[in-house]
Design a protein around this nucleic acid. Structure first.
Lengths: 201, 201
DNA sequence: GATCGCCCTATACCTTCGTATAGGCGACAG
DNA sequence: CTGTCGCCTATACGAAGGTATAGGGCGATC
């Protein structure tokens, strides 16, 4: 899907100018006058980035950014402002903003920032997609299979797993095979790598 | 070892004030008047952080920070300045600075930043130490052992490794055992995790 | 030239893994 | 009630892994 640049900007003239500018470069952009309309209209599945003004009609932009981080809304964000200062810019960058631009900014600057933001979004979606895929497969494991899988990945032998869980070795083997099948791994090494990915978030 | 706060500051009075302040809080601090003296005197093995003024007698602080990043000198850095602006702060934060403070700043602010920086340094040293340990063990592997180890970790069976490298299966087993011994792993799962750490830088 | 480390191979034996086949028990839905 | 699913067990056999013992060739270093 084509990436979409969301613009949350107070000043109507700048808003329109930005939309026109991005469209002229072949990028799709859409502007919102309020936070509410942005939250309603945006398509969460579509890749993109957010250009966020600090001063908004219904909310403070930096607070909003912080809230997004808390909610897991991780659209890469570029913060812009007309009346900014250093502490504000530092706060935005600490919160993970891709860039912080004071108005008036040059077209080249905002475009460069957007390109970085879109690239960051691509990477996030790619790695996120893989993790989701692994998680969905992990979810199909029965409780016992998860237990067995966990111990196997920790390096225990079948007989050790059996003793640990109070089972017979043959039962462990069956669960083990089920784990491998459901996780779609052909070797223990692959299974270890997959399970490690799950453990990291 | 006790962490040490390095202070690279142009203004002599602020320099002394900072050193005295940190010592009063029980933190060890040392000030340098020039980049050259900092580079000479500092002990790379001692944990700590760096408070860096943008304007220095012999070099620009931000350029210095960027150079440090390029050279792998990863002492967590807090940038301070008397005459800063937004682009400067954004540049510093993008380069990985822990914080960016404009003079005059409050004691509480610089102290909070230092605590974050020291914590970041602790984490870095801990994970770095583990990686160095693994790397040193990996370095003891013979070329063949590295080849065999790589294929094993990719999930190949001994016979497949043998075919791949034009060896007999028994030879692969011997190399395999050597790899496990030298890397200090007792199971394939542990070996996979160790090798994955190496692959991630 | 001798020693040492690295690389390679072989036979033999045991352990562990993987799979097939066959069955029992309990829970739950249709 | 019957089918299905999760869970558990057993016997049996072939495949793969792990160890021990016993070698040979090669290059470097002393």
């Amino acid at each position: 899907m084509e990436p979409l640049i969301h613009i949350l900007e107070d000043d109507a003239s700048l808003r329109d100018a930005l939309v026109r500018f991005f469209r002229s470069t072949g990028l799709d952009a859409v502007a919102y006058a309020s936070v509410a309309s942005f939250l309603e209209e945006r398509d969460v599945n579509r890749p993109g980035c957010l250009i966020l003004d600090v001063r908004l009609p219904d909310m403070d932009g930096l607070d909003l950014h912080a809230q997004f981080n808390g909610l897991g809304i991780t659209l890469p964000t570029i913060v812009v402002t007309g009346h900014g200062d250093i502490p504000m810019s530092v706060r935005a960058m600490k919160a993970g903003a891709v860039d912080f631009l004071a108005k008036p900014f040059r077209d080249a600057d905002i475009l460069a920032a957007v390109e970085v933001a879109l690239e960051r979004d691509r990477e996030r979606r790619a790695s996120n997609g893989e993790v989701m895929d692994v998680q969905s497969r992990y979810a199909t494991l029965s409780p016992r299979e998860k237990e067995v899988g966990g111990l196997i990945v920790r390096g225990l032998m079948n007989k050790q797993v059996a003793w640990e869980l109070g089972l017979s070795e043959i039962t462990v083997k069956i669960h083990r095979r089920a784990v491998m099948q459901k996780m779609g791994t052909k070797s223990l090494a692959d299974l270890v790598r997959l399970m490690e990915r799950l453990r990291r978030l």
